[in-house]
Design a binder for these strands. Structure first.
Lengths: 230, 230
DNA sequence: CGGGATATTGACTCTTATCAATGCCCGTGG
DNA sequence: CCACGGGCATTGATAAGAGTCAATATCCCG
């Protein structure tokens, strides 16, 4: 069932309170990343920079070292969405909360930039409109969600997730009318059309959906479906 | 070698010149999507809305129907990055050219929005700064690139692509110093650490790289490496 | 020099791809 | 109205790629 690798152990010395160690200037701040602005902070190897679910309000720029940005599934499967090298910025979020976690891969210096300062109150030059920003950030969120699916979910989970996604976006009660052929679904989910077909059959056998026809799916058991999609 | 499905045939009735058919108002425009602004245009099933490599200068909003946004590899493997339903916006690009193609899945109406209008010359409310915009769009581009890798590339191709990515981002001649362990690489590439290790061994056996140690990779044959990464 | 984390390698399993046959659905034309 | 045909989908048999489990091997770092 769980095809892909799960993280066996994670006995990292989780330094949840990284310590500034640029000894010349830094006071012994606690949680400096969240408060200080634009002052590079050091993180030890494997130290957490921020975690999924924490309030977001800054972005971070790697000054030296390497950072991994990742997401972990309930059962421990992990998908790293990016490695950030010096100069890279990470931690940008669409909403109020971090949707990813970030850790230093090796001892790294990271500068923090308060988001408020990055929104130009009045424009200098042309900056994107609020709507355009929403579009870009929304696309980013969806794409990142899809990364986890493609990197770490098995065929059944992918198809279940797809059904959920389509159901949530085309609300007609719990009957979905798929506009696309199996081939397209396969190319979206990184599978073959035969596998997609088989997984639909399996969801049907499990009593989770009913297939009036190939394009017409009825969700019978949303709870199980959500559980399967992981 | 080529694990994933390639598109067997694509005998779509490529309507490269979709025709506006809202008969009340529309003149018989040619290539209306690129010129008209904000006037919904109809696309037939499987009609091309834009193609990879074409100049980009607008974004598109689905009014009715469904659109697939995708990328095709040289050998025909295709990764759909998104299905766009009514209300969704697509076609936003970081640079001058479209990096994806878009087609109507079923007969669809699409509104075109010139990008110029979406950059607020003077700000109403706060809009993101140019830098922040660059960060968001850059992250988006990288994430989308990664989608193709995770959805459609096999293990050897993924590792080869990873080596290329790291080489291009950490320029020290052609010797790379990987800061992360195999486990992290695996979780980035959607593989297991054993498979990553084996693929490095294979690249070595092929004479494409040299492994001074696990963390120290030397690219011997960039051409082959690029060819393998697909 | 020793020890723990990290990496490699091997044997085997399992999921998913591949190849191929058949079935279904729907529009079209006799 | 029914038969035909073509695209699409399902199902089966088999193969291949990647995962799993397990046994070393190597590399740091103290």
């Amino acid at each position: 069932m769980l095809t892909q690798t799960a993280i066996q152990r994670r006995p990292y010395e989780t330094f949840s309170h990284p310590v500034a160690n640029d000894a010349r200037t830094a006071p012994p701040a606690r949680r400096p990343a969240a408060d200080v602005q634009s002052l590079p902070v050091c993180f030890a190897r494997n130290a957490e920079i921020f975690a999924e679910g924490e309030p977001a309000g800054s972005v971070y720029k790697v000054v030296s070292g390497t950072v991994r940005v990742y997401k972990v599934m309930a059962d421990g499967r992990r998908q790293i969405s990016a490695f950030c090298l010096p100069g890279d910025v990470f931690g940008l979020e669409a909403g109020e909360l971090h949707r990813f976690s970030a850790e230093a891969v090796v001892a790294s210096k990271v500068a923090t930039l308060k988001l408020g300062r990055l929104f130009a109150g009045g424009a200098r030059g042309d900056c994107p409109s609020r709507e355009l920003w929403q579009v870009a950030v929304g696309t980013l969120v969806r794409t990142q969600e899809h990364l986890l699916l493609l990197g770490r979910k098995n065929a059944l989970e992918r198809v279940a997730a797809f059904v959920i996604e389509m159901a949530s976006r085309t609300r007609h009660g719990d009957a979905i009318d798929l506009p696309m052929p199996r081939h397209d679904i396969a190319d979206y989910l990184g599978l073959t059309l035969e596998t997609v077909s088989r997984m639909f059959a399996e969801l049907k056998d499990l009593g989770v959906v009913r297939l009036a026809s190939a394009r017409h799916v009825e969700v019978l058991d949303p709870g199980s479906l959500r559980r399967i999609a992981a």
